[in-house]
Structures are given as C-alpha cells and as structure tokens.
C-alpha cells in the first residue's frame, strides 16, 4: 500500500475542503481499487502557503495538492493565463478557455515542475461586495477595492478604482470599518465568510473564475502502472465534475442567499442585488484588454518569449481575443 499525501483546499472553504475533497480522498482507495493510505489535510491546517504549491509539488513534499493557480503563478506567470481578469466572465466561456489551455498547461507543469494536472475547475466567479451604493461599473470610480492579483489591480485601476492589497484575515474587518469600500471574492466564499454582514451591495460581475486544480507529483504518478493511472484519472474526473457542479449550483444558491432570495445551503442575508448590464460587461472586457492582458504578456514573455503566442493560439482563439 502506498501513502498518498495530500494538501487540500483552505479549511475556510468548508464546502470544497470538507464537503467534497475529504470524502473524495477517503473514498479514493475504494473507487480505484488501489491499496492507498490517505493522508489528507487542508493546506492552511498544515501551514502551507498557496504561493509555494508548485515548489512543494516539485520536491515531492506532497503527492497531490489542491493548487490556487493565481497565487502559484508567482513561480510561473504562464499558469495565470488560464484565467486572466476580465477574460471569461461566465461559466461557458470559462469552460472553453480551460479546455483550450489544458494541454499546454499540463505540458509545462510536467516539464518545469515535475507535476501533472488531474483536475481544473473554478472556485466560482469573483464578484464584488461593496459597503457603498453602487449601481453600475461607473460607480467603482473612486472606490477602494481589495485586490489580490496584479492583473486584477491593473483592471480595477483602469476602471478608476483604487486597488488595495490586504491580507485575507483582515478583509472582513476592513470592510466593516471602511478601510476598503469593496471586496472581491466568490459568492460562496463571501457567504461563508459572512461578508454580507459588513457590506450592502452585491454586484455579480465576474472578473475571473478563480481557477484551481489538483496536481500530482510526477515521480509519484509514475509509480503506478498505466492501468492504475487510468483508474486514478477516472476517479479525479468525478472530482472535477463535482467541483464544477458546486461552482454552478453553489454560486446560484449563495447569490440568492446573499440577496434575500430563497436559501438552501448558505446563510440568508439581505444585500441589494445590483444586476450588471451588457454595458457593464463590455466595460470590464475593455478594461481587461487595455490593462490586465498587456501586464500579463510582459510578465510572461519575460520567462518564455512564446508565452503570449501560445495564449493567442489557445485561450485567445477559444474566446476570440488576441494579445498584441
């Protein structure tokens, strides 16, 4: 029997970590028929920082990791290309982008970080929770908005907002006291973290899908026979599907819970729902094209001159976009 050591999603994302991952990994030996001993811990419980994911996978410190791609891109901006701010603002578009990028993504992961893709899925659309009345994207002008990636900061700045970087543990209190006016997170995370207690306006304008993945250390992977690998891959396909399903249904439920609608699994709140118009979506897309994409191009091409060309041929082609 082989031990499989796993660093899972943040324990604060209860639905992902406890609701889906823990039971999935507990059932993995049965599902694959392999004599695996499972060692599963949410990454924050074992003091693992999301930024270090690719290094920890490469060294074999963990066999399988749940990776926050945005943060792990510190070690290679190429990966962030799967989900740049403002590129895919709904699930069907995001699905197309991920499918298009998957192969080049996996190749690079194998070559550079000694790891392989098992799943790729969105945490959920990254939406705005504001403590000030906002009716449209135009109202972001002059607001302080908490941002956590450089491309998001660039896009927010383009929209006239002031991006502010804060550590996650202080976001709730900073929204409460007014250090920032808006925070960006997924409907699920915001609901679980009780952000509606300290904000009033909910704006479901997805700036990104916050794509995550489960990656496996390649040396560990190669210990299995092709037949065993097929079983493992099949099992992880079901995990990927569960994560996608949750992103869709959980998002709907949390959004409804946040804004006083029917509420199944989340906590009910009464935020004002601000429905974005087509004009708003267009403004987001324009801001992204003008700021986030060039910023990412410069960072990524520095590491790999083919970077933006690869992106144009994959995500760009799938989404009808081009980085010059």
């Amino acid at each position: 029997p082989t031990t499989m050591r796993i660093a899972g999603n943040f324990s604060s994302s209860v639905a992902h970590s406890e609701g889906i991952e823990r039971p999935f990994f507990a059932g993995l030996p049965a599902a694959t028929g392999l004599p695996l001993t499972i060692n599963f811990n949410p990454m924050d419980v074992v003091n693992v920082k999301a930024d270090d994911a690719l290094r920890l996978l490469r060294s074999g410190a963990f066999d399988v990791m749940s990776v926050q791609i945005g943060q792990a891109s510190r070690d290679d901006p190429f990966f962030e290309g799967i989900d740049l701010a403002g590129v895919s603002t709904n699930f069907p578009d995001l699905r197309k982008a991920i499918d298009a990028y998957r192969q080049v993504f996996d190749e690079r992961l194998q070559k550079k970080f000694n790891a392989k893709v098992l799943t790729l899925w969105p945490f959920g659309p990254q939406v705005f929770y504001c403590r000030k009345p906002v009716a449209s994207v135009a109202d972001f002008n002059g607001l302080k908005i908490r941002s956590f990636t450089p491309t998001m900061s660039a896009m927010l700045q383009k929209l006239g907002a002031t991006p502010v970087t804060l550590s996650f543990s202080e976001v709730y209190t900073s929204l409460g006291s007014g250090v920032v006016d808006c925070g960006v997170t997924s409907p699920n995370s915001g609901n679980t973290g009780k952000w509606p207690e300290v904000t009033t306006h909910y704006i479901p304008l997805a700036v990104s899908g916050s794509v995550q993945g489960h990656f496996i250390n390649l040396a560990y992977w190669n210990k299995f026979s092709p037949a065993e690998q097929a079983k493992i891959e099949a099992a992880f396909k079901t995990l990927e599907q569960k994560m996608w399903d949750y992103a869709v249904t959980g998002t709907e439920d949390s959004q409804s819970c946040n804004t006083g609608g029917p509420c199944k699994n989340g906590q009910p709140f009464k935020m004002t729902l601000v429905t974005p118009t087509a004009d708003d979506a267009a403004k987001i897309a324009a801001a992204s094209a003008a700021s986030a994409l060039p910023l990412w191009r410069d960072a990524c091409n520095k590491i790999d001159p083919q970077c933006s060309a690869t992106w144009n041929a994959t995500v760009g082609a799938a989404r009808g976009l081009k980085i010059d």
Binding site: S12, D44, N47, F168, S169, E170, Y172, T173, S174, S177
Partner: peptide, 11 residues
C-alpha cells in the same frame, strides 16, 4: 495568534 490561526487581529 492571529497570524497562526487566520484570526483577525483587529477583532
């Protein structure tokens, strides 16, 4: 304590 447990220092 806040840094180790992700608890808000402000609270």
């Amino acid at each position: 304590y806040g840094a180790m447990t992700n608890t808000s220092v402000g609270r």
